[in-house]
Design a protein around this nucleic acid. Sequence first.
DNA 1: CGTCAGGTAGCCA
DNA 2: TGGCTACCTGAC
Length: 268
Amino acid sequence: MDRIKTKNFSLEHTLECGQVFRYSKRDDFYYLVAGGRVIQLRQEGEFLYYHGASEKFIRTYFRLDEDYERIVKELKKDRHVAKAIEKYSGLRLCRQDPWECLISYICSAASNIPRIKGNIENIARNFGKKIALNGFESHSFPEPADIKELCTIKSCGCGFRSGYILETAKKTGREKIKGLRCLPYEDAKKELMELPGVGEKVADCVLLFSLGFDEAFPIDVWVKRTMEKLYFRGRKTSIKDIRKFALEKFGRYAGYAQQFLFHAERNG
DNA sequence: CGTCAGGTAGCCA
DNA sequence: TGGCTACCTGAC
């Protein structure tokens, strides 16, 4: 295995904070399916051992070349986020594939992590290509044009989201989604929300986890609860007001704040 | 065996 | 704009 020396990076917190679905742990290794291949990973201290991908891919995917300290310093001004950062230090947002990220988060609507993971694996098995590494078998995530029949999508356990997946696959393409990087945040978000099954929350997830919009602040039930508890004296607050508050408070790194708070809330 | 889920779309005041 | 509710089905 190759290795890179890292700083301010936790493989465990990064993979298990809920942003990524296609990973699993087996015999002290993490197996991540990304970029059309299986990647074997393991962290020992500051060294990240990897196999199945280039160093460049690893650095890009985990955003290792970014100035983490600067982001953290900025966010630690808030005591609640500071507490979460202490506990989950080294958690980094990833640069996922935008197309896969889009479909994954369409699947996430009114669902739960085990089911979402299953949905995505099934979609890959039905429409993707077989891939393997060191005995770990999986399937690459399919191209938009390869996701075809509604009944096959339904057989993946996607339920009422199946129609959204099919229509979104028809309506958009890889390049189209990737191209949103060039737009201002609000415009990119508006474009995404034109797609069926994509509302504010899913759009923000795609913008944050795959397109590098760190100001995106996805608000799901967990984040809503947490924000109400920490900043609104436990009062019921509209998503609109929470978003406004978050953007003013956390600014350009709101997404990082969201991910720390989300992870801390779900794990205690 | 019921309940509820990492939301969205559609309809109505 | 703001507040409902139905929507599939599998985890718990």
